[in-house]
Every structure is written in structure tokens, then in C-alpha cells.
Design a protein around this nucleic acid. Structure first.
Lengths: 147, 147
DNA sequence: TATGCACCCTCTAGTCGGTAGAGGGTCAAG
DNA sequence: CTTGACCCTCTACCGACTAGAGGGTGCATA
């Protein structure tokens, strides 16, 4: 039983912040460990395994709910892993969509940036492109000011 | 002065939710409008212009702080628009990074998904790849259960 | 033995950009 | 005069943490 860890050791072993570990315990993602005489959390190898799993899944962008699902499924070793596959695919699809969205956004921004003449704000095409009216954006508002 | 708008009209004119408009007022992004006798917000053309600007910038992914900056700059018409250009470029760079991160992630996920044999969880390579130990993930933990 | 320091504890509040709901008031039409 | 759409404020919630206050513990060193 030399595998006892303080929260700090577990944190550095998994590349997680101490606060995050306590947070995972609070939301029921990581089981509450035993406590020492001085009320310190004492983690075992099992916690290390679980937290590593959580970290890897999180690093791959799975949500906490997805991680919960994956961990639930991981325990049922004799069942089909189709459900696991489905979660992974869904996540992959979401990432595909996100990349497409960002790429479209990047295109729009590039057009905006290219149009900038780098002169004064008065004829800045970026500001122009953002505003609905071509001339006099916000000139009235200086009376009561932005913010 | 036929340009007076209720919050609902402003919302549908700009494709914003009513709650979001009130939120923008609360955080000082949109100036507080005059009130009617019945305490209704009464917006003018200027508000419409400002909110349209905000919406477009937000749709392009600028943060609220960036929108604040852009609006501050938009008023100073005689100054150089270099600062505007800088904000746009910074945002564009952030998006480039995000796309790269997501693309890398997608690659990792694809490898994971390809490796799935679609048999039982026991030999599911997805679960395996997530866990640090190849055998017996979480088998002890079923005693006190996940969550 | 005292003291210092790193580490741990709980509890609360803040981040970002809204969203949702409770519990009420206003306005115009029929 | 009632109905229903709209508006008001206030508060709490979402995800996934992060930060800080105010205190306790454990160990090494003087």
C-alpha cells in the first residue's frame, strides 16, 4: 500500500490543478477518497487511473457529461462498445462543424482585414463593414459617451 | 421622430433576444435608453445602429471587450485606424490557433475511432486508449460506484 | 521546542456571454 | 372589462473551472 497520494501529488502526477481535482470530487466525477488523521485527502492508485482517464478524455475535448458516460460504459466490460463508438463519433462530428464555422469566420475576417486602407478611422473599412450605416457611426453618442 | 422602438422591435430588427439587449445595457455595452410613461425602454435610431454594430462584431467572434474597444475607436474618426486593424488581426490569429488545435484534436479522435473493433467494451480500443492501464479499468470502483 | 514554510482544508464568489423563470405591470384590441 | 401580448425587475443558472479569504497540518531546521 505504498500508493497513497496527497492531492498535490495526484495533481502533479496527472497534470491537473489541485482545485480542479476538488471540483471533480464536488461534482461527483471523481469518488471522494479516504481522509488522513489531519483531514487530508488520501488517494490510491484507482483514483490515479480514473483521473488520468478523465484528463485524457477532457484533453480530447469530451464534455464532462460525456466523460461520465464513457466511464460508466468502461465498467461494463462484457457489453458492446457501440455506445462508446457513438459518443466518439458525435464528438468528432461536433468538432468538424466547429472547424467549418471557424474557417468561414476566418474568411470573413480576412476580407475585412484586407479592405483596411490603414488611414483614419473615418474611412476605415473595418468599422464601415461592421456598422449598418456607411456614414456617421455613433457620432451622436459622444454626447453621453460610450460605456 | 418616428424612429422610436420598443425593446421587442429592436430585438427583431437586429436578430437579438430581448434578454440579451437588457444584458448589454446592464454591462454598459448599449447605453440606457429613455423610458416611456409606463417605464418601457424607448430606443432611437442611434441604438439600432449601435446594436447592429455589436451584433455583427459578435457574429464575427469578437469578444465583448473587443467590441467595446472597437466602438470606442469608431467614434474617434480623425485618428488612425491602426488600432482597429490590430484588434482584427489579433482576433484572426486567435481563430487560426483554434482551428489548428481543433484539427489536431480531430486527427487524434479519428485515430481513436478507427481503432475501434466494435466488439465488447473489454477490448474496446477507445476505452483502452483513454485509460492509462490497459487492463481492468475501474473494476474496483464498482463497489462504491461512479458518481 | 519554536518557528517557518509548503501544503492542505472549507467556503464563497468570480469568469464569459448570455439564458430562464418568477412575479408582477402596461397597453391595445375586441 | 377582459384577454393576451408585451414589458418590467430580480435572481439564479449554464460549463468548467479559477481565485481568494481565512484557517489548519506536517515536516524540517535552528
Amino acid at each position: 500500500m505504498s500508493e497513497k497520494l496527497t492531492i498535490g501529488k495526484l495533481a502533479s502526477a496527472t497534470g491537473t490543478k489541485v482545485e480542479t481535482i476538488r471540483y471533480y470530487e464536488q461534482i461527483g466525477l471523481l469518488p471522494a477518497p479516504a481522509r488522513s488523521a489531519g483531514n487530508y485527502r488520501t488517494y490510491e492508485g484507482e483514483h490515479l487511473r480514473r483521473l488520468s482517464f478523465i484528463r485524457r478524455a477532457r484533453d480530447l475535448g469530451f464534455s464532462i457529461d460525456q466523460v461520465r458516460e464513457l466511464m460508466g460504459l468502461a465498467g461494463r466490460r462484457e457489453q458492446s462498445c457501440m455506445a462508446v463508438d457513438v459518443i466518439a463519433h458525435r464528438h468528432r462530428d461536433a468538432i468538424t462543424r466547429k472547424i467549418a464555422d471557424l474557417t468561414a469566420l476566418a474568411g470573413e475576417l480576412d476580407a475585412l482585414i484586407d479592405s483596411c486602407s490603414r488611414n483614419t478611422v473615418a474611412d476605415c473599412r473595418i468599422i464601415e463593414a461592421l456598422g449598418p450605416t456607411v456614414d456617421m457611426p455613433f457620432t451622436q453618442s459622444r454626447a453621453h459617451g460610450p460605456n
